[in-house]
Design a protein around this nucleic acid. Structure first.
Length: 904
RNA sequence: AGGGAGUUAGCUCAGUUGGUAGAGCGCCACCCUUACAAGGUGGACGUCGCAGGUUCGAAUCCUGUACUCCCUACCA
């Protein structure tokens, strides 16, 4: 950044890391605990500590960083709190795999079991200390302007205290309880997992038809099942009471083959008579629906599995087998007995553990639960009343629906890595003591023989407290005692994908209302998924994942950010393509070169004493200066409005178009004759306008692409601050400067632009090389128009590449291309002599094509205008505009038809 | 099965008060015109899923329908 010249190509690698370090050292991202500025806060959804920054994070963070930087520049005390999640299962698995790898070839296998709990947890901490910052470093590459001093890990002391306090408080009011339930069990991980962690996949299986001998007869009752091994745990057979085939059997018993246990035949409307044989085997300990039937009919719960999902002692001869082996063996044995009468293929959905990929087994066990129904009411109301707003709004329906059918949350996990449940079981009275501070004695019988619960809490339990546990709760009882003017709770935005609305968003709302008596955030901004260019989910198995860090290295963080923001439409999935990324990389290069041009022309610029407040001298300003200032005002309004409305792509597109299509394509070109001209006063005015406009452009753009804008900003001759912490430009902050922009100038500039375009069009269609300087004649009778044309001769000559311009009479039109330009009553014929330059056939076909198009247009218009009802009903200005259009096209057609005659 | 989203140029998508369809990329042609070839200029390309309706006028409002995607649930 010491260098004062800019390379002709923007090279992100050379500037990005230095800029980030500089920002961080300058404390640019730090929020104030005490401030008179209004607060604006966002809590980063903490990524897994084991994680790498993936493309979804990159999108998520880009949105948050845009908001934070924009608000920070707009005078808010902006605070973005980063953090990482201990991610119980994920981290434990990573370290277990690591242990396995390390011990490979040593002859002995180290597992968490051989190490023991304490040693293993130590290992995980070691791992965390070594790799836990990896994702933070990657976030810096993207430009995330987090307040790093506030970075929090979910197992930090403060957070752990909050977790305990919440647990104890909920336990004391009976919102947390222990109970035996059928839960989802992951065999390989040996832990319970929540419903939300189960992924349903379509799997090919079979439907086995098994005969159960009916007691006291020689007949059989045929049952169809996809999981024959569970018959060992059957508690009943069930038929529909309306089913005439079977209802006479209700109350009789059958004997389970292979183990010879007798069970009843019961009736329940639940049974679908048309499926399979119409007879359902009820296995309450191994199926959620059977569990419900079991409850209503008071059936015995027979569990046939152990924690490793192997068959247990209840399975008799099958004890010790895995589920899959047991299924095979059971089928073989049944076949041998002639009781397996049919086996048909079946595709059905089976729950899989989202962590280990194993089939999830419904498993009966003692777990800790949290009651949800009571807390759901208030959590619904805050969304219904609009206290919390979802963007897009449709997600609030999804949220409310889930709140309506919410079930108690199984919060215990049989893991070692996490917040250990603060409950101590007494050996003597077998009661739990639940306390914030480790107890030494049972609170019920005062025995000292107490042992802490071995389970840890579901990771999402601590996540649910995140918005306040990271802010000192419960230590700070009065937030105002620490944060004078600033309370960061409730936070301003929560930005996340829809996949964790239930896991996280909903639970934060529940917990926030319960413990802070206020919502955790005002707006939930839900963005879509990043997909590959073909619209598929990015996944390891497809090999279509894109590493954002690779993209940053290849094309720069700014281009990556801009390619997200320019295509981010509320809630929609975003297809990522590297080709598009390259086009925004090109945009960065365009900005870079525009800045390079501007700065190089400011070499002899006299920096005014007023600095950034300096205003150009109106008498010496060119109309191009006034025009670009007016356009700048428009884009400032557009960008600010779009950001307020969360229409990020609209803001990005407005900037893209202003910079490329107005500033670069026209303004810079217009300034060239002035800069190289002899009018010193005019040149000075233009230099000041260039410097001022560039200053505003980089500031406007900064939240979108922070690095390149900072780099350019550092080279600006006039500015307020050392770094771009400078104010975000708005029409209000720029009032004095924008007052120099003249809206009426637009007509004149439009006329000049139209004439240049018409000339270029004639050149292009006739394939005249840009090297050839054309002879241009501009014909008009209006004195005002003539005056405008005369003052802009030089600009037109340069931009249209003409050697001389005659202004006045139309003269001899023979062998000339003619095009009429009309802007707000200024009519000019653009006349170019083509003699000797072209094959006239090209010009003839150009004219014919234009006539055709105009004829089509005017037919449409005249039909419309001859419709009386249109004249009666349509707005006056709509009718008037159409009339003018019609008149103009007709005039043009006549003109072109005349021109045609001159070429034949 | 229930809920949600979508169908507009070859591709990715914009288009909120209904008034002759837009952008970027890609494509074609000509050009190294000293900020930028990661560029410039010009050009081609759409009966806005389909069918009805309301209206002087519909991509836009209403009804129906087809297809795609996502979520939730179920599949003994």
């Amino acid at each position: 950044m010491e260098k004062n010249t800019l390379d002709d190509r923007y090279n992100p690698q050379t500037v990005e890391s230095a800029i980030y370090d500089w920002w961080e050292k300058a404390g640019y991202f730090k929020a104030q605990d005490q401030s008179h500025k209004p607060p604006f806060s966002i809590i980063l959804p903490p990524p897994n500590v084991t994680g790498f920054l993936h493309i979804g994070h990159a999108l998520d963070h880009t949105i948050q960083d845009l908001l934070i930087r924009w608000k920070r520049m707009s005078g808010f005390n902006a605070m973005w709190l980063p953090g990482t999640d201990h991610a119980g299962i994920a981290t434990q698995s990573v370290v277990e795999k690591e242990l396995k790898k390390q011990s490979a070839g040593t002859g002995t296998t180290t597992t968490r079991h051989t190490l023991g709990r304490e040693k293993f947890v130590e290992k995980v901490w070691e791992w965390k200390h070594e790799y836990g910052d990896r994702i933070y470093r990657q976030m810096r590459r993207l430009g995330d302007s987090c307040d790093w001093d506030r970075a929090t890990f979910t197992l930090d002391d403060g957070v752990s205290k909050a977790v305990r306090k919440v647990f104890v408080s909920l336990y004391k009011k009976n919102s947390i309880y222990r109970g035996q339930r059928l839960i989802n069990w992951s065999g390989p991980l040996e832990t319970a997992i929540s419903d939300l962690e189960v992924e349903h996949k379509q799997v090919k299986g079979a439907l086995y038809h098994i005969n159960y001998p009916i007691d006291g007869t020689s007949e059989f009752l045929t049952v169809a099942t996809s999981r024959p091994e569970t018959m060992l745990g059957d508690a009943a057979l069930c038929v529909n009471p309306k089913d005439e085939r079977y209802n006479k059997l209700i109350g009789k018993t059958v004997t389970i083959p292979l183990i010879g246990r007798q069970i009843k035949i019961i009736a329940d409307e639940y049974v679908d008579m048309t499926f399979g044989s119409g007879v359902l085997k009820v296995t309450p300990a191994h199926d959620f629906n059977d569990y419900k039937i079991g409850k209503t009919h008071n059936l015995e719960l027979i569990s046939i599995l152990n924690k490793k999902t192997e068959l247990n002692e209840n399975a008799g001869p099958y004890q010790g087998l895995s589920v899959i082996d047991a299924r095979k063996k059971v089928c073989e044995d049944l076949k041998a007995l002639g009781l397996l009468i049919k086996e048909e293929p079946l595709v059905h959905s089976v729950g899989h553990c989202s962590r280990s990929g194993a089939v999830v087994e419904p498993f009966l066990s003692e777990q800790w639960f949290m009651k949800m129904s009571e807390m759901a009411g208030p959590a619904k109301r805050v969304v219904e009343s609009g206290t919390i707003r979802f963007e897009p709004e449709s997600w609030s329906k999804v949220y409310l629906h889930w709140m309506n059918i919410i079930e108690d949350w199984c919060i215990s996990r049989q893991l070692w890595w996490g917040h250990r449940i603060p409950a101590w079981l007494c050996e003597v009275c077998e009661k739990y003591t639940v306390a914030e501070v480790d107890p030494t004695q049972c609170e019920h019988c005062q025995s000292f023989k107490i042992h802490q619960e071995s389970d840890v809490l579901d990771t999402w339990f601590s996540s649910a407290l995140w918005p306040f546990s990271t802010m000192g709760w419960p230590n700070v009882t009065d937030p105002h005692s620490v944060q004078t003017q600033t309370s960061f709770y409730p936070t301003s935005y929560l930005v996340t994908g829809h996949d964790i609305i239930f896991f996280w968003v909903a639970r934060m709302i529940l917990m926030g209302l319960e413990f802070k008596k206020d919502v955790p955030f005002r707006t939930v901004y839900i963005h879509g998924l990043v997909r590959d260019s073909q619209g598929r989910k990015m996944s390891k198995s497809l090999g279509n994942s894109i590493d954002p860090i690779d993209m940053i290295e290849k094309h720069g963080a700014d281009a990556l950010r801009f390619s997200f923001l320019a295509h981010l439409y509320s809630g929609k999935d975003l297809k990522f393509s590297e080709q598009r990324l390259e086009s925004y990389r090109n945009f960065m290069n365009k900005i870079w070169n525009a800045a390079r041009f501007t700065l190089s022309n400011l070499a002899d610029f006299k920096v005014p004493a007023e600095g950034v407040g300096a205003l150009p001298n109106k008498d010496h300003m060119s109309m191009f200066d006034k025009w670009i200032i007016a356009k700048l005002g428009d884009v400032e309004t557009k960008v600010n409005n779009a950001l307020e409305a969360e229409k990020f792509s609209e803001a990005a597109t407005a900037l893209y178009q202003f910079i490329w299509n107005q500033f670069c394509d026209w303004y810079i070109e217009f300034t060239k004759p002035i800069i190289n001209g002899s009018n010193q006063k005019e040149k000075e005015a233009t230099q000041l306008v260039m410097a001022q406009v560039l200053n505003r452009i980089v500031r406007l753009l900064h939240p979108f692409c922070p690095f390149i804008t900072e780099e350019i900003y550092s080279k600006l001759p006039i500015k307020n601050e050392a770094c771009i912490i400078d104010v975000y430009p708005t029409v209000i902050t720029d009032k004095a400067f924008l007052a120099f922009g003249d809206k009426q100038i637009e007509t004149e500039i439009d006329l000049i632009k139209e004439i240049i375009s018409a000339t270029r069009n004639i050149r292009g269609e006739n394939r005249i090389s840009p090297a050839v300087k054309l002879k241009l004649r501009l014909a008009t009778l209006d004195q005002k128009t003539i005056a405008i044309l005369k003052t802009n001769q030089t600009a037109m000559a340069i931009l249209a590449r003409t050697e001389m311009i005659e202004i006045g009479d139309e003269g001899d039109l023979n062998k000339c291309a003619v095009s009429q330009v009309t802007v707000e009553g200024h009519k000019v014929k653009v006349i170019i002599a083509l003699e000797g330059l072209v094959d006239f056939n090209e010009e003839v076909s150009r004219i014919q094509k234009t006539i055709e198009k105009l004829t089509k247009d005017s037919t449409v218009l005249s039909n419309k205008l001859s419709n009386e009802k249109f004249i009666q009903n349509a707005d006056e200005d709509v009718v008037a505009a159409d009339r003018i259009l019609l008149a103009e096209s007709k005039e043009q057609i006549i003109l072109l038809q005349e021109a045609l005659t001159r070429f034949v």
